[in-house]
Amino acid sequence: MRTFVFLIIVLISGAFAGTIHGVVNFVIVEPYLDQAIGIENQNLFASGEEKDTPEFWVEYEGYRVWQKSGQILAGTILGTSIGALFGIIFALSRNSLPGNNDVKKAVVLSGIMWFTLFLIPFLKYPANPPTVGDPETVILRSILYLSFIAISGFGALAFYKLSKKFQNNRKLVVLIGYGVFISVAFFAMPENPDEITAPMDLVNEFRIVSFLGVTSFWVSIGLILGFFWNRLGPHKETTTSYN
């Protein structure tokens, strides 16, 4: 394997796909974040915690600008991070993935990872706009969310490994095995403890745009890494000498 080429294309693909995610969020998610934070500010005024003064708004604008501009940068960093994981798994599973070129293989893998690491956890613990979460429970919620992602990901991996022991119906073994396993986990895991006090319309619309944003990342990462892999073939050099 041409390791340097491999590392570079993995990191660049992740950064690229993450930046797309950030830009998509900037356009479609930010309006909902503004709305939610607007409600939050009104609650602060109503409870007397903050006063509706020019000073308040100066400070508010100050950190909102920082937060908004962070959306795209954070997208690039998060994308590079998730892209690194994607790169590892793609390199390890490439020979078993269906498809006659690397774009198809990478898109298949990104679809599988989108499903197990994002969609299933999202259905259990959907994204929430500001004002919904109770700061007191953030550690608990983080542990629940991350555990469920790990359970789903390692579950899928375990059933894939297990299916190799079977002569035929391998796909069916994975699908049924993972399906039963994740359904049990889905109902066994505790619910998000927070009560939603924000308007439900806002929360639902926020979830839709959040879903679209993350999905744009997974589509991009598969296409971009697949494209680079096809062009540059980082696996080539050593596979010939090794086999």
Binding site: L33, W66, G70, P121, A127, N128, G133, S142, V209
Partner: peptide, 16 residues
């Protein structure tokens, strides 16, 4: 936290 705050919400990480 503030820099990554909006992405935290948008990407589904638990926040406030």
């Amino acid at each position: 936290h503030e820099l990554t705050h909006d992405m935290r919400h948008a990407a589904g990480f638990p926040c406030h």
